[in-house]
Every structure is written in C-alpha cells, then in structure tokens.
C-alpha cells in the first residue's frame, strides 16, 4: 500500500516537470519580457543589456532549468514586472481561492446530493422531472452572468450584499460561492441521480429489501454507500478546478484569488506572474487529485484490495 503511494508521488515529479515546461514554453512566446519591463521607448542597447542581464539570450531549456531550479531549491518564482516576488504575491492570494473553493464545494454538496437522491428515488415522477429540468438549466447558465444578475439584484438594487472585493468576510463570499456552486451542483445532481439509479436497480438492494431493511436505510446506506464513490470523484475534480481559480467569477466579483491574479497578469502582460501562477496552480491541483485518489483506497474496499495486490 505505502509502496504504491510512494510510487504515485514519485510519478508526479516528471509529470509536473513536463507540464511546467509546456507552460514555460508557451509563455516564452508571449513576447519580450525586457521590452515589457522597459516599455516602448527603450533603446535597442538598453533592451539588449537587460536581456543579457536577465539571461534571456540563453537557450530555452537552459532558462527553464534555471527557473525550475530556483523554484525547487529557493521557492523563488522570479519577479514580476513591478519587481514584486511572484511567489509571495501568489501565496497572498491563494488563501482567498481556497476559502472560496471550500465554501463553494460545501454549497454544491449540500444542494446537489440530496436533490439527486430525491430525483432518483422519485424517478419519472414530477419531482424527478422538475429537478432534472432545473439541473440541465443550471448546467447551461454561464456562472459569471448569473453572478452579474445576482449582483444587480442583491448588491445594487437591494444592497443586501457587497458588490465586490473581500472586505466583508462571509457576506462578500456569498455571491461568488453561490455562482461557482450552481453549475457544479447541477452536474452533481444529475450524476447523483444516475449513479443512484444504477445502484437502486442493483441486485444487492433487492437482497437488502428481502431482509426487511427499511426503505430509508436502503436508500441512504445501501444505495448511497455504493453510489457515493463516482460522485466523490466528480466533486473532487470540481474542487481541483476551483483551486485552479474560478477565473471569471473571481474577476466579476473582484475576489482577490489566484484566478483573478492570473487574468489580470495576462492583461498586463505580466508574463512571470502568469507563468508562476499557472505552474503553482497546476502543482496544487495535481497534489489534490493525488490525495483524492489515495483517499479512495480507504473508502472502497475493492480499490483497497487492488492497491494491496500491487
């Protein structure tokens, strides 16, 4: 078991190196960082001097090696165009994104799992039709637009909630968390429904019923116990994506998370910030997904057995 865990962690390293290289390569195409730093009026000599000083004349692979070396050994992602540490800036923003992701995910689970169970239990009844219609509508609504509409209603017209920023604690969080939760909840509702339906038809539920197990326990213990595994997979993927930054919603509500940090950096041609931000996010997402994967081993006896077999 632990051998397998170790193997998975070791395997992550080359994947992270490669993916960060891809990002590094793509971002090297954005333009000349020296130009971005000195502005349009810089002379060719000034530019050339700065390039030499920044090591921009070295081959790509050398620059990447130096970059990743600094990241790994010094936790240094370089400086952005305003000479601020990319790492510090990123770390200052990360808690906000984690905060948003957690609350959003909590809302998603709170809304979607019960609704999905109801839809499955009441299959082909009006509850099911209503919930399925709501779910597909929720999947189809652009979350940033929903955010804008809710902002107009609850922040501008009713003034119940702040329009943007993070100064008002939980109040500031309500709208962004809700907007990011809606499409996710819609997806999980559908998923819970179909996963539950699979289990509801399973033979072992018939066995349980034949034992005299009551309907409530049939649904919550026997069916949900089996249906929850794919649901958790999806939710953890969604959580990973949220940690990657709800780029648009964060921007709409000026939520100071990593998503809006990266988007603003792209707009400002703040290349180092974009590179560092994306690489850091990728690493975090990969670690979360790995943790989730390993968590399954403890949840599902079948998977556990597979791992132990290895």
């Amino acid at each position: 078991m632990w051998k397998y865990v170790l193997k998975r962690i070791l395997f992550l390293i080359p994947i992270m190196l490669l993916s960060s290289f891809i990002v590094f390569y793509l971002m090297s195409l954005t333009g000349d960082p020296a130009q971005a730093k000195l502005g349009e009026d810089a002379t060719e000599e000034q530019l050339e001097m700065l390039r030499e000083q920044m090591g921009l004349n070295d081959p790509l692979i050398v620059r990447y090696g130096r970059y990743i070396g600094n990241v790994v050994f010094h936790g240094d992602l370089g400086k952005d165009i305003w000479d601020k540490s990319v790492f510090d800036e990123y770390m200052a923003r990360l808690p906000y994104t984690i905060y948003l992701a957690c609350v959003s995910m909590f809302l998603t689970a709170l809304i979607s799992v019960p609704l999905g169970i109801i839809a499955a239990v009441r299959q082909n009844k009006w509850e099911d039709f209503t919930l399925s219609a709501l779910a597909i509508a929720g999947m189809s609504i652009p979350n940033f637009w929903l955010g804008l509409l809710l902002m107009i209603k609850f922040a501008l017209q009713l003034s119940w909630l702040p329009t943007s920023g993070a100064e008002n604690g939980i109040l500031s969080l309500i709208l962004p968390a809700f907007c990011t939760a809606v499409p996710n909840a819609a997806l999980i509702t559908r998923m819970t429904r179909s996963s539950m339906l699979d289990c509801i038809r399973a033979d072992y539920l018939r066995t349980a019923r034949a034992k005299g197990v009551k309907e409530g326990r049939i649904v919550l213990k026997h069916a949900l116990g089996n249906a929850i595994i794919p649901i958790l997979t999806s939710m953890s993927n969604q959580f990973a994506i949220l940690i990657g930054g709800s780029v648009v919603v964060e921007t709409v509500f000026a939520w100071p998370g990593v998503g809006s940090l990266i988007i603003n950096a792209v707009k400002a041609k703040n290349t180092n910030m974009v590179t560092g931000g994306i690489i850091m996010t990728t690493v975090f997402v990969a670690i979360i997904l790995l943790l989730v994967d390993l968590l399954y081993a403890f949840l599902d006896p079948r998977i556990k057995a597979q791992y132990q077999g290895k």
Partner: peptide, 22 residues
C-alpha cells in the same frame, strides 16, 4: 503519459496560456 501531463494543467488556465502566448 503526454495526455496525463496536459491534463494536469486546468482547462481554463491552459486556454489562458494559449491566448496569452498567441
């Protein structure tokens, strides 16, 4: 394995990266 590598980069960020690059 290449697909694994590409999939570790979140979709929106990958797209952002491409737009920023090109």
């Amino acid at each position: 394995r290449l697909v694994d590598v590409l999939m570790t980069i979140p979709t929106m960020l990958m797209a952002t990266c491409v737009v920023a690059a090109f």
